[in-house]
Write a protein that binds this DNA or RNA. Structure first.
Lengths: 345, 345
DNA sequence: CTGAAAGCGCTAACAT
DNA sequence: ATGTTAGCGCTTTCAG
């Protein structure tokens, strides 16, 4: 059914629409009595101005488009929460889309958001997590970004001008490996994710560098790549345990992998951390509720979201911003790692 | 910077805006050559029609407003995923808001969505999960619903005409309790959530009924109410273990409570399910990755989301729909429950 | 097959 | 302090 408009109110109050608009927005003085009359009408009709009309005129929607691969991965809701909090204070709401890492769907949504004229875009996952993003996908993103302020969250696209907000994952991994070394571990493996993703590559590189700098063993068969799931962690740990030369500790590409690894170890009759130390990455909420509680690297997902909105805001205001905004991760030591004890005493 | 409009295209192609509109929407035949000319221009300018203008005219936005208490609770992303999938196929996108169970924020968002003229609203959490919703909160919701098709997901408001899609939580709890009884348990406790929430009340009632019908012990001190968090589960289990008369199994209001309960039991030196059986509710993704894997009741969160969108769609099309759409939950038996063994042999 | 023009609901000059 | 009016960018009669 047709909703009440500003005209209906104006007519009934015997004033012009301009006056109604004025009381609505407080944009110019209105005599007290007229204001009261109008306000009463607004109340009684429960009138709410049409945002589309206003948006069309002002050329702004108050909406930020958020493209996320999969909200079911607890990392993203955390980022979302941070972003939402910041955005709400600035008066923005989110148009949200799950891209499921499907590039076509990402493109779909990119177009949709352009059509809907969102004021800004936050893009996570999919193509911006690739080690090497295909040119046409990158170009599409740049094209959109040239019209709508866009920031890549927790990812980046090389050789582009796209601005991104991300965690220093290399530094985070170094923290994890160093922690294990300090605990006396010398045989440390790396459980990776999909090798074409930049996060896996960055972390592997950091892992190698720290081990090398420490003069420790760098076995190829201890550098695994699979995917980011719990099952992947299980598979990789199973493989590790089947080797004749076993590591005493593993660094995982993310918390899911770590959980999978622990499950596999437990199923094989080992204890964590007594028999093998495991460190994760991300600090998903579950990490400190799992048994054992997970030692992990916090990406401060909340901050990531908050910062991304802050940067986006600046861009929407037409300010110039840095191309890269790096957040420092930090190590959270809990129960899944501990001092190496020599079993062969 | 100003974006290209249909007028720019029209002028450059030497046609009227009407013609451009026609090729854009295929709403009337256009001569092949003109069409080609226009399409070329659209391509080269990378023109994208302004959705706001169209929305204003058509009086529809293609947006569904989704109000959720907390995406950080893994149940909701699951619902979202189901809803998103269904909505995407129908051409809708979501405007998403975290209400954090804050009624004022819920109201805020309700107004916002009305202002933005979303085509429909999906409302979860907060006031619709209350055992008894305050009249003015209920009224506000009804007012919005009278203007915008609205469905309550996984909740309801008594004595209202608001339509809702929900799981039969009573039936689900009965399933859980019966399962324990069949395993030989006779001393079964209930770990609840906040007592003013309908879900806690409904589940408690079902728990009582099944036990009573089976002629089993119904101790008041085994019927706990706290909140829905992991910590709450811990607290409640700790309390239970401090009693002189301990249950051999517990039914929890949700998976978080169950996980907390297990943690507390483990910390107290017990094993699950050897010493005590635990069943959860919701089947969050974590449930089958936890150690031990959780026996739980699946709400089929995905279905909930999908169904809600289906019902909403019907409402948006002006169809009449049932007031209540009940989904049947089912039991998923995993590792956290098992046959009672007599310790006092 | 194509163009002219009205109008969706609102805001913001510009008058008065 | 208030009214008139011109758009914002698009779709859709209504004419040709």
């Amino acid at each position: 059914m047709r909703q009440i408009t500003i005209y209906d109110i104006a007519k009934e109050a015997n004033v012009s629409v301009a006056t109604v608009s004025r009381v609505l927005n407080g944009t110019a003085p209105v005599r007290k009595s007229t204001r009261a009359k109008v306000e009463a009408l607004i109340q009684s009709y429960n009138f709410q101005p049409n945002g589309m009309a206003r948006s069309l005129l002002k050329n702004e929607t108050g909406i930020i488009g958020l493209i996320v691969p999969d909200l079911t991965n607890p990392f993203y809701p955390e980022v979302f929460a941070g972003a939402e909090h910041a955005a709400h204070q600035l008066g923005y709401t989110f148009l949200l889309s799950n891209s499921i890492g499907d590039y076509a769907k990402e493109s779909d949504y990119l177009h949709l958001m352009r059509e809907k004229r969102v004021d800004g875009i936050l893009f996570m996952g999919g193509r911006v997590n690739l080690k090497q993003c295909e040119p046409h996908l990158a170009q599409e993103l740049e094209q959109v970004a040239s019209v709508i302020p866009t920031v890549l969250v927790n990812g980046a696209i090389r050789n582009s001008n796209l601005v991104s907000v991300l965690t220093d994952e290399g530094a985070g991994t170094a923290l994890a490996v160093q922690h294990l070394i300090e605990l006396g571990h010398r045989d440390i493996a790396f459980l990776g994710g999909e090798s074409h993703m930049s996060t896996a590559a960055i972390k592997l590189r950091a892992y190698r560098k720290v081990l090398k700098d420490a003069g420790l063993k760098l076995l190829p068969e201890w550098q695994l790549m699979d995917s980011f799931s719990i099952d992947s962690g299980k598979r990789q740990m199973k493989h590790l345990l089947s080797l004749t030369e076993r590591p005493t500790a593993v660094v995982c590409v993310n918390d899911y992998n770590a959980i999978g690894a622990i499950k596999a170890a437990v199923e094989a009759g080992l204890s964590v951390p007594e028999d093998i130390s495991v460190v994760g990455f991300d600090d998903i909420p579950l990490a400190h509720h799992f048994i054992p509680e997970l030692t992990t690297v916090s990406q401060q997902a909340n901050d990531l979201g908050r910062t991304a909105v802050g940067v986006l805001k600046q861009m929407m205001e037409g300010q110039k911003v840095k191309k890269q905004h790096m957040l420092e991760p930090h190590l959270i030591v809990r129960q899944s790692t501990r001092t190496l004890v020599q079993h062969d005493v």
